[in-house]
């Protein structure tokens, strides 16, 4: 799996201008956003666009056919994408913390971080499983756009309706419960995707 991860990280580095552009969106969000939730939207956007862009590239150059000649199982192939999304989530969180500190918008409640991770995990679970099972090009692309729209609208609604996200974060046990739900969905999404991809012919 380390070879697959190395290749994806190499490709992300090759697209540094594109990544910088997305990061500027982060900065913009920090400047004009309303609290932590404003930044979290761009965190999801950051992970989604990088993952979707990588996957779209892979479909264009038929990477799956090459992977099937390598000493890598299909389970490894799927798992690598999930591991990559966790790494990207870490990067997004680090950027979030950095920008929150810079703009002085960081909430004293740690609950908000749990909630952010939950929202990231749910988004990544939906996006990864959909793009890997249905593909990203053609009509399938519409599905991705729809999922992204739903996720962004959902988080956006939370953000702009009086920072509800931060209110939820103040309820003690709830963020931890929601985080567990996010992790559960992430694992479920991974197992379903592995099961389906293992049966595919290409």
């Amino acid at each position: 799996m380390k070879g697959l991860l190395y290749k994806d990280l190499l490709l992300i580095c090759k697209q540094h201008l594109y990544i910088l552009l997305i990061s500027f969106l982060f900065v913009g969000a920090g400047a004009v956003g309303k609290g932590n939730a404003g930044l979290s939207i761009y965190g999801i956007y950051f992970i989604s666009t990088v993952v979707l862009n990588l996957h779209s590239l892979e479909e264009n150059y038929h990477w799956r056919t090459f992977v099937d000649s390598l000493p890598v199982s299909r389970e490894d192939y799927v798992n690598e994408k999930y591991v990559l999304s966790i790494i990207l989530m870490g990067v997004a969180m680090a950027l979030f913390l950095l920008l929150s500190a810079v703009f002085g918008t960081f909430s004293s409640s740690w609950g908000i971080l749990f909630l952010m991770v939950m929202v990231y995990l749910i988004s990544v679970s939906l996006i990864l499983s959909t793009e890997m099972i249905f593909g990203i090009q053609g009509r399938s692309y519409l599905r991705i756009v729809l999922i992204m729209a739903v996720v962004l609208l959902g988080v956006g609604a939370l953000n702009y309706s009086g920072l509800v996200l931060e209110q939820i974060a103040r309820i003690r046990i709830l963020p931890a419960v929601l985080l567990c739900a996010g992790v559960g969905l992430f694992i479920l999404s991974n197992r379903i995707t592995v099961a389906i991809i293992k049966k595919r012919e290409w």
Binding site: L4, Y6, L10, H62, F66, P71
Partner: peptide, 20 residues
Amino acid sequence: EAGLPPILKVKEIGNVLKRM
């Protein structure tokens, strides 16, 4: 269909295989 990433240099493709 070779399936190799077009934006990787030839030596980088070798580096990927080294880890595979």
